[in-house]
Nucleic acid binder design. Structure first.
Lengths: 138, 138
DNA sequence: ATCAATTTGGTACTTTAGTATGAAGGTCTT
DNA sequence: AAGACCTTCATACTAAAGTACCAAATTGAT
């Protein structure tokens, strides 16, 4: 939350500076108050833009972030999830067994359980469901 | 661009209203100018937030746009691409045939050609390659 | 009109994928 | 310790997926 602290600090400083400017404007000449107000409006409009740009760029990354809480809801175990990730890479059951040091039989068991838990008939459908549920990246 | 028009209209109206308030504040009593300025700051900060929220939600959709020029480079025909899209939805060859009004044989032919053109051994690997090449959404 | 590529479809075959069922060891909780 | 769940693996089977050829109608460009 470093960004939040920075933004709020900037807000407070801007507020103080503008208060002083407005006070100065008042004592020296009133005809410039409109300009000061315009300046304040522009500055805070810019700050509003900046703050949301930060949070927006965050949100662009979040959709590719996995929602690991949903795994518990779906009853998907760690090992099953590991298999799911390898499926997403386009590997066959045999290849998944090699990379995770499992027999093809075990992989098939995990895949079968995944299909039930993801309510899918095929591994491609499982991938599509997993993407919908945000439990795998991209 | 209806949103842009609305936002700028709101900006102009806010500006006019705040100018009148500030003028009134000035003639009736100067002690409230700080409050007016604070109000202006908050309002324009909020407008800045709103404007960026609109444009941010637009940008979230763009990265999932397909790069159709690459299809020519890869030699993937229209029909083959249609089959690829259905594969991404998790459909079986039979189901793809039903939705595209093709026999399962034809779908198999298209899939086989896709696998060669995408340099994949399986349909799941084809999906992963297609995502890498940005030729399918999500 | 001809040639190349696309689209469609078939048969026959091999290879993966997926189901069903059983079993055994490990872990964690009550 | 007993029960529940996870993990591992096996066998036997069915169902898809994928390959290899072949063939014919369609389309697009030269």
């Amino acid at each position: 939350m470093k960004k939040t602290i920075f933004v709020f600090s900037a807000l407070i400083v801007s507020l103080l500076v503008l208060f002083k400017i407005s006070t100065y404007s008042y004592t020296s000449g009133n005809s410039r108050i409109e300009y000061v107000i315009s300046g304040i409006a522009i500055v805070f409009f810019g700050i509003g833009l900046y703050v949301n740009r930060r949070s927006a760029s965050k949100k662009n990354l979040e959709p590719q972030q996995v929602d690991l809480d949903k795994l518990e809801d779906l009853g998907i175990s760690k090992r099953e999830y590991e298999v799911l990730v390898e499926i997403a890479k386009g590997l066959s059951n045999k290849e998944i067994g090699d990379t995770l040091h499992l027999s093809e039989s075990t992989v098939k068991t995990h895949v079968s359980n995944l299909l039930v838990k993801l309510d899918a008939k095929r591994r491609t459908q499982a991938l599509q469901r997993a993407k919908e549920l945000n439990i795998i990246a991209i």
